[in-house]
Design a protein around this nucleic acid. Structure first.
Lengths: 233, 233
DNA sequence: GAAATAATTTTACAACTGTAAAATAAGCCT
DNA sequence: AGGCTTATTTTACAGTTGTAAAATTATTTC
C-alpha cells in the first residue's frame, strides 16, 4: 500500500548508470572497510542504499560486480597515467618528449591521485591476493600491466640510448625493478603507512633509476635529484 | 560399535603437537589453493584428515588457527635469515662480518628456501591483504618487520661508513627501497610468475644496492656483480 | 486518469558458515 | 580384563551466504 498524497515514496527509480556506479562504489568501500573475505551482497547493497535483490538486476552476480569494480580501479589509474604523460600544460615539447622526464612523470603519478588514497591501495592489495584464483581478473590485470610494462621498457631504452649507455643498461631488468619497487612501496603504504612519507617513496624510485641508469653521466638529472633531496626537509 | 578383532580402528590418537602441525599445514595449503576468503573450517579439517570438530580441541577457533599459521610462516623465513647470516660453513670470518656480504646473503635468502615456494608467497600475499584488519596479525608482523628493517639500516650504514660514503648515503631510505623492492618482487612472482626468473629478482636487488651505495667505488663488489651478470645467461 | 513498463523491494530457499556440546571409542593404567 | 582418561567424531544449531522468483510500486505513455 502506498501512502496518501504528500507522503514520500518508498524508493525512486534512478538511471541505470547511476545505480551501477553507486553499487561499484559501495563494493570498493566495503572491501576497503571489512576486507575481501567479509564483503557480502547484503553489505554492499546496504552501503549503496539499495535492497539486496537489486544487485542482480544490474549485474550477473556478486562476482560480476566485483570484477567490474576491479576493472574500474585499474582503469582510473591507467587514465591518470596516460593524461599525465601527455599533459598539455607543459609548455616545452622537447621536455615532454624527453624520456627522462617521462620516467619522472610516471613515478610521480604512481604516488599521486588515486594511488595515494588509502582506499585504493588496500582494495588493490585485496584484488592482488585474489588475482591468482580468478582468470577473469587476470585478463583484466594483464591488459594494464603488460601494456605499461612494455612502455616502461621502451622509455628506459630511450634514456640509455640518448646517453650512450645502451651496453651497460638492461632495459627489461630496470623496468622489472622499477615496477616491483612501486608495487612494494604501495604494499608498504598499506601496511606500514606511517613509517615513511610519499616523498620518501618518490625518492626511492628516483634513487633506483639514478643507479640503474648511471645518473652520474647526466647533469640535468643530478640537478633534479638534488632538488628532490632538498624538498625532503 | 567397534568392529571385530582384526579390523582397523576408526581413528588413531596422535600426539598433540603433531595434530596441531597438521592442522596448520592444512590451513596454509587451503589458503594457497582456494584463497583466504574461501577457506573454511571443514575444508581445513578435511585436508588434515580430521573431523571438523577437532579444530576447536587444539585451537580457540578458526581465527586462532589462522593466526598461528601466519606466525609460523613468518618465523620460518626469519629463522632462515638468521641462520644464513651466521652460517658457520663460511670459512673466512672477515668475509662473514663484511656488511657488503651480509647484504648479499640477505638478498639471496629472500629468493631461496621458503620464499621461492609458490605456496609461501601466495599465502603471504593473502595475509598481507588481511593484515590491515586484524590487530593480532599486525603485532605478529611487526615483530618480524621492524626487527629486520632496523638491522638492514645498520648494515647499510656500515657499508657507507666503510667506503667513506656516509654523507651521500641515506641508510633508512636505502633500507626502505630494498625492503619494498623485495616485497614487490615477491608480489610479482605471485602474479606474473613466468615473466622473470629468480635470478632476475636477485639482479634487480643487487642493481638497486649498486646504485644507492655507489658500487663504482667498490671493486670487489663490481666483480661479484659481473659474475652475477654472467650467471644470467 | 488508467494502463503498461520495468525498477525496486520482498520473500523464499538451499547450501554453507563457525561454534558448541554430546556421544563415541582409542589407548593407557592397574 | 576392565575402568579411566581424553582424543576424536558426531550431531545440532543459529546465523549467514548468494541467488532466484514473485510481489510491489514509481514512472511513463496514451
Amino acid at each position: 500500500m502506498q501512502n496518501a498524497a504528500a507522503s514520500t515514496p518508498k524508493f525512486r527509480r534512478l538511471e541505470a548508470d547511476f545505480r551501477r556506479q553507486r553499487l561499484i562504489d559501495a563494493t570498493v568501500k566495503c572491501i576497503a572497510e571489512h576486507g575481501y573475505a567479509a564483503t557480502s551482497v547484503r553489505q554492499i547493497c546496504s552501503k549503496a542504499d539499495v535492497s539486496p535483490g537489486l544487485l542482480r538486476h544490474y549485474f550477473t552476480g556478486k562476482s560480476d560486480l566485483i570484477l567490474q569494480a576491479y576493472a574500474q580501479l585499474i582503469d582510473k589509474f591507467s587514465t591518470e597515467l596516460k593524461s599525465a604523460l601527455d599533459d598539455h600544460s607543459v609548455e616545452n615539447q622537447d621536455e615532454k618528449d624527453d624520456p627522462r622526464n617521462k620516467l619522472k612523470v610516471f613515478v610521480n603519478t604512481c604516488f599521486n591521485g588515486t594511488m595515494q588514497e588509502e582506499t585504493t591501495l588496500s582494495v588493490m592489495l585485496a584484488f592482488w591476493s585474489e588475482l591468482r584464483l580468478d582468470p577473469m581478473m587476470q585478463s583484466n590485470a594483464k591488459s594494464l600491466c603488460s601494456g605499461y610494462h612494455q612502455q616502461l621498457v621502451d622509455v628506459i631504452s630511450d634514456v640509455a640510448l640518448n646517453e650512450g649507455n645502451q651496453d651497460e643498461v638492461d632495459p627489461s631488468l630496470v623496468a622489472l625493478a622499477l615496477a616491483a619497487l612501486v608495487d612494494g612501496l604501495w604494499l608498504q603504504m598499506c601496511i606500514n603507512r606511517s613509517t615513511f612519507s610519499i616523498n620518501d617513496a618518490r625518492l626511492a624510485c628516483f634513487g633506483l633509476l639514478d643507479g640503474f641508469l648511471f645518473c652520474g653521466t647526466n647533469e640535468q638529472w643530478l640537478q633534479v635529484r638534488a632538488a628532490g633531496r632538498l624538498d625532503q626537509h
